[in-house]
Design a protein around this nucleic acid. Structure first.
Length: 453
RNA sequence: GGUAACGUGGCGGAAUGGUUACGCAGAGGAUUGCAAAUCCUUGUAUCCCGGUUCGAUUCCGGGCGUUACCUCCA
């Protein structure tokens, strides 16, 4: 499609036309999980959003032209802490959580990124980068710690619109006697014997939080690439620090040209936080809802907007998908989505606008030909919906049913006898009983059929 | 205090310098033993105050309000 893609670029502070460095080699890096606890629905939002951006980029520039990298941070103080708390060895914990993360991605119908590098497999690259920063005078060592010297990077604060003086006025930055300045951040820190560590020129230790993204984006996408994504909260300090490290280590070249950040999820209008006790894990929904329901809920609001998570949201999403599955028809061969229908996604990933177009395609499909149904289904597939056949959608719902098919048919038989005898009171009672169990009765012509509510 | 996002009908949520989103819920109708499902029809909105304009919900300024980040966090 010839249409241009637009993205809201945090670095520019506005929506911009997307111009790739090289149309045949587009690079997108998205901050993946730190594997210390099961992913929550807040983590689910960027997973789905950037999955769709990946699809849109591939649609415009071709499948093989887009490289999507999403890291797994498997060394971090949070993991060490969590491991102590849960009394699980660190390796085992990060392995378990990584597995759980992958299950969640599958559940949410996210396709695999091109690369999913792990921090622990790239420590030597991080050490290399620290060496360059030390050599360039952007970093200094003190008692086996290595710090980045923020004062040496004059663009520090550009992404988050902060200047260092104001930052210090807040004075909540960690002050350490090892640091020259409070705003400096750790590149390398020593490890105790009971903590994971790697040999380095500064002794046995481990990398600081931000370094893995700088090292791994360089490895897979080069010094300069197109898009860097993540949640809003990562703008400062994480992404600001990544920019500082990478540009100073890579000859001050531009790092990522476009910075895309998704908004937060609130729970019934309250901040989701451990202290509030309202953190929902993605896992919590596995048995009750098909992953598509969460996926639709997550994209029902524009990615930059806050999204409130509540029962009504999930009920509506479930209902919409139930309706849409009525028109499901697996496309045979290649079916094209109309440019006009697709265009909201090109305009800064306007998913609600696109969903509205799907509703229109549904109306057409509902009274149209098989071809219309295939077009409708293809449009859903594009954003990762209706990606499993109807049978499997229904199968999932049946699993939550606490009545057997045999019993249902028996009840229908009883009800029809009652109806023949004009005992409508009993007939309605049976129908309501079935309805309570999630079974919906339909009398069509002379036949009674049932389906899941 | 600093930085940013946002304020649209009963709810969710787009777009737009003048007319229309879309979904859910509601109302009326067709159908039905009654329903359900389906189909048809339909009402309701742009935080406040200025400015620009023939005309602003949309652009500009001010105010009020909500939220986030500035500390680990998607």
């Amino acid at each position: 499609m010839n249409k241009d893609i637009y993205l809201s670029n945090t670095l520019a502070g506005k929506k911009e036309i997307f111009k790739p460095i090289n149309e045949k080699k587009i690079g997108m890096y998205v901050c993946g999980p730190t594997v210390y606890d099961d992913p929550h629905i807040g983590n689910a939002r960027p997973l789905v959003i950037f999955d769709i951006l990946f699809k849109v980029l591939k649609c415009k520039y071709g499948k093989s032209s887009v490289t999507y990298v999403r890291n797994i941070t498997d060394i971090d103080d949070k993991i060490i802490e969590s491991s102590k708390q849960k009394k699980i060895p660190i390796n085992k914990l990060s392995e378990n959580i990584t597995k759980s993360f992958n299950q969640d991605c599958e559940y949410l119908k996210c396709e695999k990124p091109s690369f999913e590098p792990k921090a622990t497999e790239n420590i030597s690259l991080m050490i290399d980068m620290i060496n360059i920063l030390l050599k360039n005078g952007n970093a200094y060592e003190n008692s086996s710690n290595v710090y980045f010297d923020v004062s040496t990077f004059k663009d520090y604060g550009k992404l988050s619109n902060k200047n260092i003086d104001e930052l210090l006025a807040g004075a909540r930055v960690e002050v350490s006697k090892n640091k020259k300045n409070p705003e400096d951040f750790v590149l390398w820190k020593p490890s105790n014997d009971d903590e994971p560590g790697w040999d380095s020129p500064w002794g046995r230790g481990r990398p600081g939080w931000h370094l893995e993204c700088s090292a791994m984006s360089k490895k897979f996408l080069g010094d300069t690439f197109d898009i860097h994504g993540g949640g809003r909260d990562l703008i400062f300090p994480h992404h600001e620090n990544e920019i500082a490290q990478s540009r100073c280590a890579n000859g001050n070249k531009s790092f990522s040209n476009y910075w895309v950040h998704n908004g937060f999820i609130t729970i019934s209008n309250e901040k989701m936080a451990k202290s509030q006790g309202n953190v929902f894990k993605i896992k919590d929904f596995h048995s009750k809802y098909n992953g598509q329901v969460l996926r639709l809920a997550l994209i029902s609001t524009h990615y930059k907007q806050p999204l409130d998570w509540n029962d009504n949201l999930l009920i509506q999403s479930q209902k919409t998908l139930d309706k849409w599955y009525e028109c499901y028809k697996a496309p045979k061969g290649k079916v094209l989505i109309d440019e006009k229908d697709l265009s909201p996604l090109y305009d800064d990933l306007n998913t609600p606008g696109y969903i509205s177009n799907i509703h229109k395609l549904y109306d057409k499909a509902a009274k149209g030909s098989d071809k219309d149904k295939e077009i409708f289904t293809t449009a859903c597939n594009f954003i990762g919906l209706l990606t499993e056949p109807k049978s499997s959608w229904l199968e999932f719902k049946k699993r939550n049913l606490n009545i057997s098919e045999k019993e249902i048919l028996q009840k229908i038989k009883e009800r029809n006898i009652a109806r023949d005898n004009k005992n409508y009171e009993l007939a309605d009672k049976i129908r309501n009983e079935l309805l309570d169990k999630g079974v919906l009765i339909e009398d069509k012509d002379d036949k009674t059929t049932w389906k899941l509510k």
